[in-house]
Design a protein around this nucleic acid. Structure first.
Length: 420
RNA sequence: CGGGCCGUAGCUCAGUCUGGUUAGAGCGCCGGGUUGUGGUCCCGGAGGUCGGGGGUUCAAAUCCCCUCGGUCCGCCCA
């Protein structure tokens, strides 16, 4: 045997039965979001690195964690670290009618050290609504994300909301904050000083003790909003109130990407310890389309991390693993023709079924049938073959079995399954 | 990028401190328990170059060094 390969560091194989939970989660998302008029977008897993660099020079995701490479044509590309940038690039490229409401399911790649709830490849579902500045769209998107979690059964999540204001507000506030931080530079944690001048908003996001203490008294963005931005925030708040969605305003909430304007928010799981408790977040990004070379177009959206959601679901004992058992298991000890034909006859009539392979003994096949979780077994041995019948056995009630003419099998099985 | 813990059968682990005959257990898997029938029980079997490399020694899963991986904390983020 040669070298045994394994999944690269920080990546995981999601196998059955664990993958059944993924399917269930994605199905819930597609349902919740699809019924709000959002359509699926599939776009490339890699893009010109410039697409992602516009996410913000101040962010770790762009500065240090990008999975970038040069292809054989010497194009500088990167695997997507998040979902929004590709969607906005696609919006610019195709100019769909607005508001363009779409959702996605995608792996995201970040080169960092793995730990609990953090991988080099993780997965997000998300939604974006591009081409409208209506704050009611912020409300819609937040509410859809909220409802998604709720339908999954997550009840112990908290929502923090902030406004970064208009691009002008944001810039003015950043200047004000940089000045304020400069006067207290000595009190900041050393690791945060570098950001204080160039990316002051990031300092608000620091969790270092010294910095947190200093920043507690910093000027707040919510006190610096223009009338227009303040009005928009009020509209978002009243929308959430009307829909019965609880939240708290957190002026210190600065999300990991630089492109946000106006609304930003984050859902956190109280049950998850420490740092990796964010199960999703989003915001409005009114300048992003333009910075990617398109015409100005406002947009709003969110991303939600599947691995984090599943961790939160574990902590809350929610989203149990759905059963993947088939209804019928076909056992054939006469060579396999009947097994092959019966399973497909059932399947083509909408009845889920499986069978054993490799011509094993009846005892062995019955074990497989039991393990499969099937409710009914159909047995074909020499007697049945000779008489053109199949034996139907109930595997749950431990009990009886009856002989069925081959022509009656589908109808009888369907009746049994329907009858409970 | 800084730090702690851990790598022995498919899985969960014992054995490592106090080197020494063919490296163990449970679960899982495969086969059998006479007359074609699972779930309980009994019997048997397959499966490991003890993460990899180097060193010390008569002798290394066990001691030392390096390396790769896993896991967790910080930071950052989903």
């Amino acid at each position: 045997m040669g070298e045994m390969f394994q999944a690269p560091k920080g990546t995981r194989d999601i196998l059955p039965p664990e993958s059944h939970r993924w399917q269930a989660l994605v199905a819930v998302f597609a349902d919740v979001i699809g019924r709000a008029g959002y359509g699926l977008v599939q776009s490339p897993m890699f893009e010109d690195i410039g697409v992602f660099q516009r996410l913000g020079e101040g962010t770790e995701v762009v500065r240090k964690e990008m999975y970038d490479f040069h292809d054989k044509g010497d194009r500088h590309l990167a695997l997507r670290p998040e979902g929004t940038a590709s969607v906005v690039r696609a919006f610019n490229q195709h100019r769909p009618t607005v508001p363009w409401k779409v959702w996605y399911l995608t792996p995201c790649f970040r080169y960092e050290e793995p730990q609990a709830g953090r991988f080099r490849q993780h997965h997000q579902v998300g939604a974006e609504a591009i081409g409208s500045a209506d704050p009611d769209l912020d409300v819609e998107v937040i509410a859809l994300q909220h409802d998604f979690y709720r339908v999954l059964g997550l009840s112990r999540l908290s929502l923090r909301l902030n406004s970064m204001g208009s691009p002008g507000d944001r810039q003015a506030y950043a200047g004000l904050l940089a000045e304020w931080l400069a006067r207290r530079s000595g009190d900041l944690d050393e690791a945060d000083r570098a950001n204080a001048a160039g990316h002051p908003l990031r300092v608000l996001d620091s969790k270092r003790e010294r910095t947190v203490a200093v920043v507690a008294d910093a000027p707040r963005i919510t006190d610096c909003l223009s009338d227009e931005a303040a009005t928009r925030l009020d509209r978002v708040r009243s929308g959430l109130d009307a829909l019965g969605i609880g939240y708290e305003i957190d002026p210190g909430l600065v999300r990991g990407l630089d492109y946000y304007t106006h609304s930003t928010w984050e859902f956190a799981a109280g049950d998850l310890t420490s740092a990796q408790n964010a199960v999703g977040g989003g915001g409005r990004y009114d300048g992003l389309a333009e910075s990617l070379g398109g015409r100005p177009a406002p947009g709003v959206g969110f991303g939600a991390g599947i691995e984090r959601i599943l961790l939160a679901a574990d902590a809350e004992d929610a989203l149990s693993q759905p059963s993947a058992a088939v209804d019928v298991f076909v056992v054939d000890v006469t060579g396999g023709d009947s097994g092959r034909d019966l399973t497909f006859e059932l399947r083509r009539n909408g009845i889920s079924s499986d069978r054993a392979f490799d011509s094993r003994s009846m005892k062995a096949q019955m074990k497989v049938a039991d393990r499969s979780g099937a409710r009914l077994a159909l047995l074909v041995g020499p007697d049945e073959l000779a008489s053109g019948t199949a034996t139907l056995r109930d595997l749950r009630s431990g009990g009886g079995q009856i002989a069925l003419a081959r022509t009656d099998v589908v109808a009888e099985v369907a009746a049994r399954l329907a009858g409970g």
